[in-house]
């Protein structure tokens, strides 16, 4: 075997779990509140940024991604990269359909 197999899983301190929980609740409140403020086109950006931060917290701490092998991180990265590719290349068609009558 060439990958490093952690013999024992990392035990995360309870304080971390509760901290993450509080942070997630705060972010939920924040994103809901900010939605009522008119930021123009930045509303979407802020909402998605907060969602990404929340998702990262869940991934890194609740799902122990911070403490598991790098291979797992690679797979998660690949999944989001592919999702981005699917959305990105599809949108490349949608947004450019009206250009110059093409």
């Amino acid at each position: 075997m060439t990958e490093h197999a952690a013999p024992h899983a990392h035990v995360v301190p309870l304080a971390v779990y509760f901290g993450v929980f509080i942070a997630l609740l705060v972010f939920t409140g924040a994103t809901t509140a900010i939605a009522f403020v008119d930021l123009g086109r930045f509303n979407v950006a802020v909402a998605l940024t907060i969602a990404v931060v929340k998702a990262s917290l869940v991934l890194l701490y609740f799902m122990h991604l911070r403490y598991t092998s790098r291979l797992t991180l690679v797979f998660v990265g690949i999944a989001f990269f592919w999702l981005g590719t699917m959305i990105g290349l599809t949108m490349s068609d949608i947004v450019s359909r009206g250009w110059f009558g093409a």
Binding site: T31, T32, A35, F36, N43, A47, L48, A51, V58, L59
Partner: peptide, 16 residues
Amino acid sequence: IVWIFLFPLLYLVERH
């Protein structure tokens, strides 16, 4: 995590 994305995308589109 799926819900964390669904909530802003479905409920918070244009509240302001």
